[in-house]
Design a protein around this nucleic acid. Structure first.
Length: 512
RNA sequence: GGGCCGCUAGCUCAAUUGGCAGAGCAACUGACUCUUAAUCAGUUGGUUGGAGGUUCGAGUCCUCCGCGGCUCACCA
């Protein structure tokens, strides 16, 4: 900012001039220290405690100093009512010229604006209208804002500005703040849950020499000193299982994954995934644990095992429904894919049932389409679908009684996939064979097929105990629990296309 | 990437058939010592996303470009 010419808007210039006016009279508009004695919430709590001991209309005799952003101001002759908001709530200030002196009173009117951070000292009382307020004896500037806050009644509506300038969105829209507070509660609930069960939280590489653990296109980058290509991880899975090989029995990681694919209401290029792995557990154990986890999160976030998503009341208190993928598809579409092992046969049956499927779709993808089109939209209440065709699951262990299927489950709630888990494949030679199968798909043009990870196979050759593992998309889980329809509404700074270069200083267009 | 829709003052939104670009909030000037979307009187603020074109005349119609939303395809 030092050497750039910033063209301020008229409103910004007006505010800048006010900051200069304060400076000229010896008041720093950006002082280094605040002297808060109480948050707005503490102040209200305090008044609730002392009010019964006060005479009617009496003032608390304690002098408090509160801080916050000035969010409203109503001037009435020689009094001003204003609200400040801090991180804990809002509180009304009652400012009388006789209390603060003429100069401070005039300054507050002329040089302070909505959006400024202020510090106010005074005593608590209740107004005739019934609102607990601070009768101000002293007020000062903590930080002069040059941008006007968004309109007070409608807030900030413009979707693009809300995402590009999340700071303005958070200032203007209380419900947006609440979504991200809930997200934080969800994540801390997860950590508490896993920590309490003897898991350790670990960190594995974001920059990986080889990507794996999921079917997706990666972001590619170059490490200059090594002269080597790295990939941003698309999953943590293979590293976490290396740790199981190494002897850690219970590990988890909550981390950003990156996938270089399309963006829509359910997809962002970077997103947050929880994965955990437990030695000597199978997918049924993981399933039981997942159910407990969801129940705990609901209790922590809502205080009850019920919440609303898309106008559906979802109840997580009862045992979650469990059915095999085969039965679920058969019930919903009449198609029994296990009896239709030929691609043509399955495609014909799926289309006869009304599915919209492209002609060149491969067998496992047809099964996936049947799931998407017939089953998934109806899985509103929590439902585990289990036992997937091996072709869909290159890292999962086969069922002992049916090698065409793997011990895998997905959890669906509110019509969306919340978790994907399986008994981990620990047979190194089977794993190698699956990688080779992926390699063939890759050579056939499937850009999302996994590359062969020889080091991972090498790790398995040291022996991995029977292990259960799971991935839970934190963003999707948050969408479910905050009833948000778009993933961007649960990611603070969603990816957006960069704006073309233009002059800084405009309130709206300058971000990005 | 395809289809559809959108972009007007700092914010929220108007503008009839192509005919003077407006309102509320914010800001500015003033009145008002218990207001709370305060009220009242007045004032300022615009490259209508950008560039072209058609036209006597374009926010409005056409072309191209930018950004965004919804949706379809792929994916979690």
């Amino acid at each position: 900012m030092v050497d750039s010419e910033i063209e301020l808007s008229e409103l910004q210039r007006t505010r800048q001039e006010k900051a200069e006016a304060l400076r000229k009279r010896g008041t720093e508009p950006y002082p280094p220290h605040a002297a808060r004695t109480d948050t707005t919430a503490q102040a209200k709590d305090r008044y609730a405690r002392v009010e019964p001991t006060l005479p009617e209309g009496g003032e608390d005799n304690a002098e408090l100093t509160l801080v916050g952003r000035l969010i409203s101001r109503r001037h009435q002759g020689k009094t001003i009512f204003a609200h400040i908001r801090d991180g804990f709530g809002e509180l009304q200030l009652y400012i009388r010229r006789d209390d603060v002196g003429e100069e401070a009173f005039e300054d507050f009117l002329k040089l302070y604006d909505l959006g400024d951070f202020v510090q106010a000292s005074g005593r608590l009382f209740r107004t005739r209208a019934g609102e607990v307020s601070l009768r101000v004896s002293d007020i000062s500037m903590l930080s002069k804002a040059l941008n006007a806050p968004p309109e007070k009644w409608h807030g900030l509506q413009d979707v693009e500005t809300r995402y590009r300038q999340r700071y303005a969105d958070l200032i203007a829209n209380e419900e947006v703040r609440e979504v991200f507070i809930k997200r934080s509660k969800i994540v801390s609930s997860i950590r508490r849950f896993l920590d309490g069960r003897g898991f350790i939280e670990v960190e594995t590489p974001t920059l990986q020499p080889l990507y794996g653990g999921a079917a997706a296109r990666p972001f590619t980058t170059i490490h200059h000193a090594l002269g080597q290509t790295f990939y941003l991880r698309i999953a943590d899975e293979l590293y976490l299982k290396r740790l199981i090989v190494g002897g850690f029995e219970r590990v988890y990681e909550i981390a950003k994954d990156f996938r270089n694919e399309g963006m829509d209401r359910n997809h962002q290029p970077e997103f947050t995934m929880l994965e955990w792995y437990e030695a000597y557990a199978d997918y049924r154990h993981v399933m039981a644990m997942t159910e407990d986890l969801i129940r705990q999160i609901a209790a922590d976030v809502f205080g009850e095992p019920r919440f609303t998503k898309d106008d559906n009341e979802i109840d997580v208190s009862a045992p979650f429904a469990r059915k095999t993928l085969r039965d679920a598809i058969k019930e919903a579409s009449g198609v029994d894919y296990v009896a239709l092992l030929g691609r043509e046969e399955l495609l014909a049956a799926a289309r006869a049932a009304g599915a919209d499927i492209a002609s060149d779709t491969v067998w496992p993808r047809i099964v996936d389409e049947l799931l998407k089109q017939f089953v998934r939209p109806n899985l509103i209440q929590p439902t585990f679908l289990l036992d997937y065709p091996v072709e869909l699951s290159p890292l999962a262990k086969r069922k002992p009684d049916d090698p065409t299927h793997v011990e895998r489950f997905q959890l669906y709630i509110g019509g969306g996939e919340i978790a994907n888990a399986f008994s981990e494949l620990n047979d190194p030679m089977d794993q190698l064979a699956r990688f080779l199968g992926q390699q063939r798909d890759r050579e056939a043009g499937d850009e999302e097929a996994m590359p062969i990870d020889e080091d991972y196979v090498n790790a398995l050759m040291y022996g991995m105990p029977p292990t259960g593992g799971i991935g839970i998309g934190i963003d999707r889980l948050t969408m479910l629990l905050t009833d948000q329809p778009n993933i961007r509404d649960v990611i603070l700074f969603p990816a957006m296309r960069a704006l073309p270069k233009r002059g800084p200083g405009r309130a709206v267009e300058s971000a990005g």
